[in-house]
Amino acid sequence: MTSKRMVAPYVLILPSFVLAALIVIWPVAELAQIASHNVNRFGQLRDFAGMANFRALLDDPNFIASLWRTGIWTVCVVGGAIACAVPVALVLNEDFYGRDIARVIVMLPWAVSLTMTAIVWRWALSGESGMLNSALMGLGLIDENIQWLAEATTAFPMQILIGILVTIPFTVTIILGGLSSIPDDLYEAAALEGAGRWEQFRHITLPLIAPFLNIALVLNTIYVFNSFPIIWAMTQGGPANSTDILVTYLYKVGFRLGKLGEASAVSLVMFGILLIFTLIYVRITTTARGVRA
């Protein structure tokens, strides 16, 4: 009986393991093979090249710049999304007339494909016929059109803002889940003790939704880090590579310039970075369960 108990868990996780191996390990092995060879533009392997593809990356200033920009992009979008999502979730958790409609409105951007959102924003930000410029002009905030997408100094912050906007619904969903798990009597007891709204938030709400915030943080980091459509549809990483992040850089190197070896090396680097985040995620979810138990 005991030996059966020992074996059963492994047998039970075997299907998931096989599936994971097919979905994750096989492509990564394939990538490693391409990254360590000279490859023609159609992905056919030529001779072994060792680390040459990785060295070529390190010599490319655009790669280093994209790496840094990916960091800024991820931190700003994830941080901004969580900072906006917490108050939104708090409001949506209150009982008020029309709450269901408000929830639907907040969730709506989630239902629209990311590419469509990005393309609509590309039109809205167009310099001469864009909605944003005419709105700002109508409000008297600007005298002449701003060319939003012409330079990285205006384009990249706008892309971050749109990134935040589309990340909010998912984040709100997670936080709402956390909020609904907090029993009301905790607040009643705190109110009896004379705690104000802010103190209730700091000492009850925040600690109790902390595990949920952590999950939102890590999941969003993984999604945003890999997010391609917003930047691609709006600027294609331009002008002059000044809004490239790693995914758009990867796409250009791989499919526009046909250097599949270098592109595979970029994906491996990205995979490595995300692997670290995933490990953190596993840590967080396991400790989070510990806290609740």
């Binding site: 167009s126 310099g127 001469e128 059109n145 060319q147 002008p239």
Partner: peptide, 21 residues
């Protein structure tokens, strides 16, 4: 030229032309 040329792909310039701008 139109301002902000680096935000104009060929289709964008064509749109300006079609709008008579």
């Amino acid at each position: 030229t139109q301002p902000g040329v680096t935000s104009y792909a060929r289709e964008d310039v064509q749109n300006l032309f079609k709008q008579g701008k």
